[in-house]
Design a protein around this nucleic acid. Structure first.
Length: 306
DNA sequence: ACAACAAGACCATTTACATCA
DNA sequence: CATGATGTAAATGGTCTTGTT
């Protein structure tokens, strides 16, 4: 279904290629060989010429000139016997590779029909085509992995820098007047007029404490509402599938557990941690399950859509 | 409807060879 | 020329899906 229509559009190109692979290589044929590639670049021509001895175009030599002259003399009569030397690996010709690449771009999976057709048109064994696609997918995956790694590393470095900055700020705040470190009574805070530059911080802490009290008395909160549609609100909001800068947080192997804890506790008041832990590890999410609040079945497809 | 089986596709890993610096 | 590094075709062994009996 999918392949045939799209793929058929290339058949003419493949036919040209196939013809060129099999017939004696004249310069006219060479031109047509290279012209089927839409963006036939000088580099491709150069590549081809590096693999094929175009000086010998009039010698009735097939395009597969990787087979050395002595072997060629013995097997011009039977191309297949010559090319498929048992126990010898032969590189695919640039033309074959080019065509396979084009085909891979169209669809990186290989339906049986398409495999047969490709094999036929490239004068390869169907198994060779299958193996090529297999290896090509592996190479592609490696490439994607490398890109992802670079991206995650950049995110990690940035986050680590932010963390270090926060640590320093935290240290600075610890050195501020002792009164700011005393246990905070929200009611007191309301009646007191903040007098220092840490006014915002104190207010935020008071608000959080007030909320926490509210939670413990009512059993509910906007943020940690276990009966809401998003029981893992924090995870769901903080982590978006596809955003690798978030995903990486799930496995920051460079952080020790202690460092990780201190990281979190730097950003959140200690008083809410018990509640957080209780809310996060409910029936669906086991501690350390590393599922980041998403259904397990969804996680396998976060990264590798290839 | 269900289990057992075979065939084929795919993947990760390894091996073997070709090529190049 | 010999050699190590690298790229890639092919082999291997495992899992999974699908169709058949």
């Amino acid at each position: 279904m999918e392949g045939s229509g799209v793929y058929d559009s290339n058949s003419s190109m493949a036919n040209v290629l196939l013809r060129d692979e099999k017939i004696p290589c004249t310069s006219d044929v060479l031109d047509s060989t290279l012209s089927w590639v839409p963006n036939s670049s000088p580099s491709f021509h150069g590549c081809a010429s590096s693999m094929v001895n175009f000086e010998d175009v009039n010698t009735e030599r097939p395009i597969f000139t990787q087979i050395d002259d002595t072997k060629m003399e013995n097997c011009n009569e039977d191309f297949d016997v010559c090319f498929h030397q048992p126990g010898k690996k032969r590189r695919l010709t640039p033309n074959q590779v080019q065509f396979l690449e084009k085909s891979f771009e169209i669809e990186n999976k290989l339906e049986p029909e398409r495999k047969i057709q490709l094999a036929k048109e490239l004068a390869l064994q169907p198994r060779q085509v299958a193996i090529w696609f297999q290896n090509r997918r592996a190479r592609y995956k490696t490439k994607v992995l490398e890109k992802e790694y670079d991206s995650l590393k950049a995110s990690y470095d940035k986050l680590k820098a932010d963390y270090d900055t926060l640590c320093k700020e935290n240290e600075n705040m610890k050195n501020e007047p002792q009164e700011l470190c005393d246990p905070i009574n929200p009611l007191d805070l309301q009646s007191k007029k903040p007098t220092s530059s840490s006014q915002d911080t104190a207010t935020n802490v008071a608000t959080m404490l007030a909320k926490q009290e509210d939670v413990s008395s009512s059993g509910k909160s906007d943020v940690f509402d276990s009966s809401s549609d998003s029981p893992h609100y924090n995870h769901s909001v903080a982590l978006e599938p596809g955003d690798s800068s978030h995903v990486f947080e799930a496995d920051v192997s460079d952080f020790s557990q202690d460092e990780d804890d201190s990281f979190s506790r730097t950003l959140l008041p200690p008083s809410i941690f018990p509640k957080l832990e209780a809310e996060c590890y409910d029936d669906d999410l086991q501690p350390n399950s590393c599922n980041l609040g998403f259904p397990v079945q969804d996680q396998g497809t976060w990264f590798w859509q290839y």
